[in-house]
Design a protein around this nucleic acid. Structure first.
Lengths: 241, 241
DNA sequence: TTCGCCCAGATTGTATGCAATCCTGTGTGG
DNA sequence: CCACACAGGATTGCATACAATCTGGGCGAA
């Protein structure tokens, strides 16, 4: 049993999914587990095992794994299987470089499109973040990382460009993975309420300032990481690089 | 026979593929066909039919189609099948908005990393573009669009960020589709040798100027489009929107 | 002992069969 | 004549069976 018991929490969804797309459901559950680090980087995702856990055939599991491989959360090797991605420090840097490039533009676009409804949604999001920030424990830390990502996703959603939104979905997910891998758990990972400052800038219509704050924010997130050495080196991948 | 005879040219590859990944091979051939507009937007890509053309089972075809759906070149509808994407004018605008946001940053990054080998590759690329630009005929036009995209991909490759490179792959592919759909074939689609100017700026190490030229270039490409009305309205999708 | 080879188990890659869903055209009732 | 219902055919969704490949251990020879 290579997959440990935390995975059993994957199955907290209504067992009888309606005629929806089961592959995408499994993809979402796996992605949550990866981003939350319930599935550690490098973990093998056996088709048969995942299929058993979700009670589907390997066919739909393969579709889900292919989707995750596309997002960069899973690395699929021919005839060897799929593994939870184990981003190198270099990859981590590229993730943040990409975010520094894209997110300011998103902020500027969002500033010009912010509706009262959007503001309300943002406020709810910030309250949730504060709540999690106050809590203690690894579980709250996971939820905090997740919620922090949701803020950025919400921003991309407001910007109104579905392509950029999808890019940001991928970047945020990979960021969560990177933070889980390289984060100095000592410092609050996304601590300060920079999100609130960003929202304030958006509300005042100052997209340029929001963009500026966002870059600073991303810098803070990256500065909290320790990208000097790769973790552990999971046996095999130490040689294949 | 919903797929017309031009598709037969898909099969110009060595019939006996080595033990490689056949799904990705099929994906690449289909993508080429879509970008070249040998497969018109809205065309149904029947699993059985594609499988017959490439002599594989539907399983492999499904994987290829799923990959193309991720890239946005194919729209897959549950229980209905996969269709060549038919981007709306709004989607087209978002593609170019995304490029205006991302490509300047790529240019700045590339300016600081341009090696002599890169320059040589760029020169070869420009020569190929000039050659195609001089030629006449729809076939040369296709190749020209493709080559123009390759220039931008090369730029992203030099920039050295694999994530941004993949984003650009998607954006360039979608741009080709959009140009094929909305391009005023009257004007030269990517005409002027702006690419040469961009390369010159890069060579002189002036990343800022390269970024500026790139934005102008993208604006020119978009300005050559007619995004006012949707083309033809492919029956079904006319009602579903 | 150590190296190399070979075989068995396990896992993925692919093809195929069946069930579910959707589209189309035909027939029936209003 | 039109609207609706339904049945036939075609296509996709999914599960399963088989083939190809990889992994790891055992055995024998140097």
């Amino acid at each position: 049993m290579t997959i440990a018991d935390p995975q059993l929490t994957l199955l907290n969804s209504p067992p009888a999914q309606a005629g929806e797309d089961r592959a995408m459901t499994i993809r979402d559950h796996l992605r949550d587990a990866i981003v939350d680090r319930r599935l550690a980087p490098g973990t093998k995702l056996s088709e048969a095992e995942v299929g058993t856990l979700f009670d589907v055939s390997r066919t739909v599991v393969r579709a889900a794994l292919q989707a995750l491989a596309f997002e960069g959360l899973v690395k699929s090797e021919r005839n060897r299987g799929a593994f939870v991605a184990n981003p190198s420090p270099e990859e981590a840097r590229q993730v943040f470089d990409s975010r520094r490039l894209i997110e300011p533009g998103i902020a500027r676009a969002a500033a010009g499109r912010l509706s009262p409804g959007d503001i309300a949604t943002f406020r709810k999001q910030l309250i949730e973040e504060s709540r999690l920030l106050a809590e203690r424990g690894a579980l709250a830390r996971r939820a905090e990382i997740r919620a922090s990502g949701d803020f950025h996703l919400l921003l991309a959603s407001v910007a109104g460009n579905v392509i950029l939104h999808r890019f940001m979905e991928e970047l945020v997910a990979r960021s969560s993975l990177v933070i889980a891998l390289y984060g100095n758990s000592g410092a609050s990972s996304c601590g300060h309420n920079e999100h609130a400052d960003i929202l304030a800038a958006l509300e005042s219509g100052d997209g340029e300032r929001a963009a500026q704050l966002l870059v600073t924010h991303i810098n803070h997130i990256e500065a909290d990481l320790d990208l000097r050495h790769s973790t552990g080196l999971p046996l095999r991948e130490a040689l294949s690089r």
